[in-house]
Design a protein around this nucleic acid. Sequence first.
DNA 1: CTGAAAGCGCTAACAC
DNA 2: GTGTTAGCGCTTTCAG
Lengths: 341, 341
Amino acid sequence: MKSTTISELAKELGVSVSTVSRALNGKSVVKEDTRQMVLEAAEKYCYVPNEIARSLKKSSTKTMAVVLPDISETFFGTIVKEIDRVVSGQGYMLILADTHENADNEKKYLDMLYTRRVDALVLATVDCSGSTVRRFMESGAPVVFIDNVPDLQELDAVTIDNRQASRMAVECLAAHGHRRIAVIAGSEKETTGVDRLAGYEEAMAERNIPVDRKLVAYGNYKWESGYLQMKRLLALRKENPFSAVYAISEKMTYGAMRAIAESGLRVPEDISVVGFDIHQVGMEPRQKITSVRQPEVEIGRRVGELLLRRLADLGEKEDQAGHRRLLLDPFLEEGETVGVF
Amino acid sequence: MKSTTISELAKELGVSVSTVSRALNGKSVVKEDTRQMVLEAAEKYCYVPNEIARSLKKSSTKTMAVVLPDISETFFGTIVKEIDRVVSGQGYMLILADTHENADNEKKYLDMLYTRRVDALVLATVDCSGSTVRRFMESGAPVVFIDNVPDLQELDAVTIDNRQASRMAVECLAAHGHRRIAVIAGSEKETTGVDRLAGYEEAMAERNIPVDRKLVAYGNYKWESGYLQMKRLLALRKENPFSAVYAISEKMTYGAMRAIAESGLRVPEDISVVGFDIHQVGMEPRQKITSVRQPEVEIGRRVGELLLRRLADLGEKEDQAGHRRLLLDPFLEEGETVGVF
DNA sequence: CTGAAAGCGCTAACAC
DNA sequence: GTGTTAGCGCTTTCAG
């Protein structure tokens, strides 16, 4: 079942290739009889358009890429799913690249994607210098950042308001009477981590609660660092007491809770916990964790729509409207890990 | 920073395009001086090869597609991540298509992918008739099925041994003294569901435990059906008593556990539970569910390797070795939801 | 309304 | 070793 080409159809029908092309694409004016004839022949000979040839000619591949650190995380999976839903409606397909949180892989993938001439790019970078994407951006292809945004001026990004996220966490805890609130933060080099810590500090300040640096731990978003940092905080609890802890990533939250459990303390009786990005799998009966959450589906939708708009603007030679950073609202999902102090 | 083409480089250097092409690809023999000269010019003028043009010429896109029902599930995310890792090492990139468990979407995506001339396909189909993939397979592109395998003869597939999976579940329960074991099975139309139920029946038979049809419930893999079927089983528990339940999907397991909790019964004191595909997120302290698990990373790796091999065989015009169905071993992850009866 | 022709950027015979 | 040339399959002026 070898598929036919446009020129074979043309020969078969005794018309020119351009006529066949026109009839197939329905754009230009073709006599109705001719169109029918072509369509029938296409059906009969199993004609399938070759998008590669079309891409070469039109220098547009109808393809977008999503480059991210870990597709097995529900957070990214949900975002990608929604981006795909939105853009596939306009005939775009998604190339996925999983960097395993590694900057070298990210660079390698970006090069491959550039070579493949993808029309646009979604990037959850691990390389905040933003150096490897630069070529992409300079080439004129729309690039939208998610999750982690380099500190450049001219760029599109869709993220939550990370300061606001932390403010909600602190607010929840403070409302339950907590004042000595430990935090397991992230790297001081990533904007995400910096913003989340800043939000914590702001919220504390608003309530006239002094921030005790001894209660600020720095992790790297992984389970182990949540576990270790919590251990450390717990070990110094005599001198630096606290009644609650806020962890800024899903895995660190789990690590911290394990450390608490191992120390024989109970949640929330002894220590209250607010986590981040905790996906309550199913609705099974267990202790639900109070957590700051991101609206993944909305993030995906906004990214998809933004990309589509940028691409349309490109076509119309309109000026790129100024770069925009969409800041979506996080929300607090109430669970059973926060008690009154 | 518009990127150059091979012919512009050639003109610039006063050599022919073929020389440039050869120097760049390093395949054929080119004088070392020439090669250096070309390489330097390529660097200087920011030459980036155009994979689209190359694809058109070589009729190979160095692209594979993965079509699946829900990328936000950890199960699929993990598999895709590993496939990507394996095949990207050979220069292939992955196009992802999320069908939202919908046969129409699946068909639409398969058409788009065919049009894009992907070199190979991984499919977790929701359409077991296998009718929409047929064209793909007939075109000669390697297709590997995962998760759900249509009932055709000639095909490559990588799955776990689903009968074995159920046998392990029953074995675990039987070892704890359970004989009245309810099961929340899947559709009778999908091979996956059929095999899992068959494994349950076999294991029961091996132990001379009669299968009580009243204890066999049919769900559709979703949370709601696990919940509803469990409710139903529970409602008839007086007449058809059972001390354990085995659910064959992650979501149905959660739904079932919720139903049990709502009925006021305790797990495992009143009812033991063995689930399927339960990803124990993190290692947080909570009731861990005893579950049959699939080795997702190995599945991904095998799929990637199989695809790569098929593609290599294609190039060498070797006979396709007979189609193979890899049956990997599931494993039982012990939790705290199975008690002695 | 339709046809002829010129490529998109690259590879690969086939000559020299 | 290197150059010439003929496309891969399609879109799109430009004529008629």
